[in-house]
């Protein structure tokens, strides 16, 4: 277990439902994988696709967006707007070769701490099965060059 791959998930949590759900999970001492790093936004509708791409580019293995259930959005239907945006983003990520499990949108009401914790656990398991994302190789197609190769090149200059 020691050497098991620990994925890093960036969690965009809406202030009204899902952030409170995560608070509740903690208050209720629901233990879940310590893989999700939370970022509070007022509403999932604030999450720009760029935020997701940025997180993946910066080294996250997955991104979890969590908002209020449809019909329960604090801002009437921000979650629906997020859903629409999310669907488009997924279509693009698929073309990049980023697996569906890496970017997820879930609904968690303020009372659903356990459900949110389960979502994080589930996603962690899925990402573990997929392995690290390695955005630069996967999406940009770059190849890392070992340091000694770099030195050789510099030396040749």
């Amino acid at each position: 277990m020691e050497n098991e791959f620990q994925p890093i998930i960036v969690g965009f949590l809406c202030n009204w439902c899902s952030y409170r759900a995560a608070d509740l999970a903690g208050t209720a001492r629901v233990h879940y994988a310590p893989t999700m790093r939370p970022i509070r936004v007022m509403c999932t509708a604030r999450v720009e696709p760029e935020f997701v791409l940025k997180a993946l580019r910066e080294g996250a293995d997955g991104v979890l967006i969590a908002g209020c259930h449809p019909g329960e959005c604090h801002y009437v239907e921000g979650n629906i707007k997020a859903l629409r945006r999310f669907t488009l983003l997924k279509a693009m990520l698929r073309q990049f070769g980023v697996e569906d499990e890496r970017v997820q949108l879930v609904w968690a009401a303020a009372s659903e701490g356990k459900q949110l914790a389960e979502a994080v656990d589930r996603m962690t398991e899925q990402l573990r099965a997929l392995g690290p994302l390695r955005w630069r190789q996967r999406v940009l197609g770059e190849q890392p060059v070992a340091r000694h190769a770099l030195e050789v090149e510099v030396g040749a200059d």
Binding site: V10, R37, I39, K54, G59, W135, E142, V145, A146
Partner: peptide, 17 residues
């Protein structure tokens, strides 16, 4: 904040071709 929260996740600094 995204950059900060992922400070330890960035891929190792080597030359990328």
């Amino acid at each position: 904040q995204i950059e900060g929260i992922l400070w330890d996740a960035r891929q190792p600094e080597v030359l990328w071709l």
